[in-house]
């Protein structure tokens, strides 16, 4: 505690530490630029053409990133509050097959109407496991890892039951245009929709009491309770948000492939978790941003699409993404140490 009488003596921070601190804070941006440069350079040296200068490539990367991002948006809130949601993969699948089944059951309706009803049903059903998650974790104080692991199994079973164990294909021009159309012939519609939802989530997290309380709970739940935060309500709401974004991911899937699959979101779950951590969230809660999650989703999407583009066996993407997650965690830890040493605090 520096008092007014004694001028605070600021210890000089060594340049080396300053650079390290900057690197650990901005590493995900730098890493994004690095892999973009890497694939661009590879593309020129092997195929003698541009990678990111090609509109199709950019659109494909953004569509892949959108799939990851949609599931990761809600998850960002949950991880900041020091929880986890393992059920989002099959919540996405549940929404995807429900939407497909509803559209299939209404062949005589106008495609726009059956599409709207399909979306409503898909999102509506996705919110049910979200509510149960919220109730288990917020009210009954079940640890989120266990509660959502249970709901992972339950939603998985229901998704396959509703789908009848198979992929449910649909013929609906509006759904197809929604999943594959482009705004101004350039921006894929799912990307545009996801961008709007992302902005709303950024607003919620960074600029509202709700977002602030999410951080406060992740930092120290006792202090949040003592400050009068209704932690039960916040916990319930973030699991509903998470179910909503997972449901949206399922809707995008059904639109994009004109089919709903129960396991539509299953392979994306771990990528979504990875995206949140790469974006700067910490497993112990209390940190993370929507912008970080967007960067994390882009990094994984570029790795996925880029490795296929340069002709590597697709299994390399698992290895690469796995390594990136480990790097992210190591950097998160060193960032904390650096902050302490540069503050000069005990």
């Amino acid at each position: 505690m520096a008092t007014q009488s004694e001028a605070p003596v600021k210890p000089a921070i060594p340049l080396r530490l300053k650079i390290l601190k900057l690197l650990t804070t901005a590493w995900s941006w730098l890493f994004l630029l690095f892999i973009m440069a890497f694939f661009e350079a590879w593309s020129w040296s092997v195929y003698e053409r541009t990678f990111f200068g090609n509109l199709y490539n950019v659109q494909s990367v953004l569509l892949t990133a959108t799939q990851i991002l949609m599931m990761a948006l809600g998850l960002t809130f949950i991880i900041i509050s020091a929880g986890i949601d393992l059920s989002i993969g099959f919540i996405a699948g549940l929404a995807a097959v429900t939407m497909a089944v509803v559209i299939r059951a209404l062949p005589d309706l106008h495609p726009a109407l059956s599409f709207s009803l399909g979306i409503t049903a898909g999102i509506g059903i996705a919110l049910i496991p979200g509510m149960i998650n919220g109730w288990l974790i917020a009210r009954l104080k079940v640890p989120s890892f266990i509660g959502t692991l249970g709901m992972f199994g339950v939603t998985r079973g229901f998704a396959f039951l509703i789908a009848g164990g198979a992929t449910v294909s649909i013929r609906n021009s509006v759904a197809r245009d929604f999943g594959n159309g482009k705004l101004f012939d350039v921006i894929p519609i799912p990307v545009a929709v996801a961008a709007v939802i992302t902005l709303v989530f950024h607003y919620l997290l960074a600029h509202t009491r709700f977002g602030l309380y999410t951080y406060a709970m992740g930092g120290n739940i006792q202090s949040a309770i003592r400050a009068g935060v209704n932690t039960t309500r916040i916990t319930f709401s973030i699991f509903m948000l998470s179910a909503f974004t997972a449901g949206m991911a399922g809707i995008f899937y059904t639109g994009r492939f004109s089919a709903g699959a129960a396991d539509a979101g299953e392979p994306i779950l771990l990528n979504a978790v990875a995206a949140v951590f790469i974006g700067g969230a910490s497993l112990t809660g209390g940190s993370g941003t929507i912008a970080g999650t967007v960067i994390g989703s882009l990094i994984i999407a570029i790795i996925q699409f880029g490795l296929v583009f340069i002709g590597m066996p697709p299994f390399w993407q698992f290895i690469t993404v796995g390594l990136v997650i480990i790097i992210a965690v190591l950097i998160d830890q060193s960032r904390d140490r650096l902050s302490r040493s540069t503050m000069g605090a005990s």
Binding site: T208, R209, L212, A216, G218, G219, N220, A224, V229, G286
Partner: peptide
């Protein structure tokens, strides 16, 4: 102490009694 360790001083003093303002009619912290 009941401080939220991950948040800054300003937020800690106001936690639970935050001050809002409006930007283009939208309430923000």
């Amino acid at each position: 102490l009941a401080l939220a360790d991950n948040l800054d001083v300003g937020i800690n003093i106001f936690l639970g009694r935050e001050r809002m303002k409006r930007v283009f009619g939208i309430p923000v912290l």
